[in-house]
């Protein structure tokens, strides 16, 4: 039987977790995730977090500021892994909390929860380095395929204010109503195009008249018109998403109808940015908590930084 408390404790200290325990953990969480719809329905109040990217120590800082689960209910908008040095520990910690408090911790998929992207941006290499084989990476990738694509946050009142739509990236030209997302067969590697890809890859852009090509090579850029149309049609008061580094930790655009939340402070131990999480209360009021990186962890890590500057 899996000793969750011990694993949580080990993961927080970055101690080695046996490969078999990880397999068991991944299978357990799949059983929970498979029951969840593509768009999870979550009641307020909730704290929404953006990209974490393997910055375990900063995730612990976030928990110590916004309170550990189950005291606070959390929605993580994806990109748990890659770039940081503790992708595996970060992901395992979130999985442990998901298993322990399935109704207090919600995880949706980011564009980095993908086999292809993790082989370029660090998670694959990290697993190989820590376990000598790709098994652990493979178990985690199986979990990725079960993650939901978005969430709908509601205070339970009918009509009136409307709820909050949450997704990692943004909107898709193929999707006009949230209901359409329910029909996507999500249990697959993130495709290179189509609505599932767009939800995980798209970005809002100010001052564009219509859908535009994204410089990322996947997803689209969408403007205020597309956002307002989607909010009106789906009776939303806010779209909350992550995916883009914002130096102040969060950024509202389009007259407050869309917010980007970013939860990895000093991203890649280099960007010098602040991080934030967003709490939405029963009246849909938004409260942002901002936090900075723990300096002491950065100095240790920077010794093994690759060439991240132009010298």
């Amino acid at each position: 039987m899996l000793d969750l408390d011990k694993i949580i404790d080990d993961v927080k200290k970055c101690n080695h977790v046996p490969e078999n325990d990880i397999l068991e953990l991944c299978l357990l969480v799949q059983e929970i995730l498979i029951e969840e719809p593509n768009i999870q329905l979550i009641d307020t109040p909730i704290t929404v977090c953006g990209d974490i990217h393997g910055q375990l120590h900063d995730l612990l800082t976030l928990f110590s500021i916004a309170k550990y689960p189950p005291e606070t209910k959390y929605l993580f908008l994806g990109d748990f892994v890659d770039r940081g040095f503790y992708s595996l520990e970060t992901f395992l910690l979130l999985l442990c909390y998901k298993i322990r408090y399935p109704d207090r911790v919600f995880l949706i998929r980011g564009n980095h929860e993908s086999r292809q992207i993790t082989t370029v941006y660090g998670f694959y290499d990290e697993c190989l380095r820590k376990y000598g084989s790709a098994n652990v990476w493979r178990y985690c990738c199986e979990v990725f395929d079960y993650l939901a694509l978005g969430a709908y946050i509601t205070n339970g009142s009918s009509g009136g204010d409307g709820g909050v739509f949450c997704v990692h990236g943004g909107l898709s030209p193929d999707i006009t109503s949230i209901d359409q997302i329910k029909y996507i067969d999500r249990k697959q590697e993130v495709p290179h195009e189509g609505s599932m890809c767009d939800l995980l890859w798209s970005d809002p852009e100010e001052n564009i008249p219509a859908w535009a090509v994204s410089p990322r090579g996947a997803g689209f850029l969408f403007g205020q018109n597309e956002t307002e149309r989607f909010c009106y049609k789906n009776n939303l008061n806010l779209i909350a998403r992550a995916h883009q580094l914002v130096m102040e930790g969060y950024k509202e655009v389009f007259d407050g109808s869309l917010v980007t939340v970013w939860s990895a402070p000093n991203y890649c131990y280099r960007c010098g940015n602040i991080a934030a999480c967003l709490t939405i209360d029963d009246d849909y009021n938004r409260t942002y908590q901002v936090f900075e990186s723990d300096d002491s962890s950065m100095v240790v890590q920077s010794k093994i930084l690759p060439n991240d500057y132009f010298l």
């Binding site: 130096m247 000093n266 131990y269 280099r270 960007c271 010098g272 940015n273 950065m298 100095v299 920077s302 930084l305 991240d308 500057y309």
Partner: peptide
């Protein structure tokens, strides 16, 4: 912004 301070520290 803070980019330069982090760069100084990292390097």
């Amino acid at each position: 912004d803070n980019f330069g301070n982090v760069m100084v520290k990292n390097l």
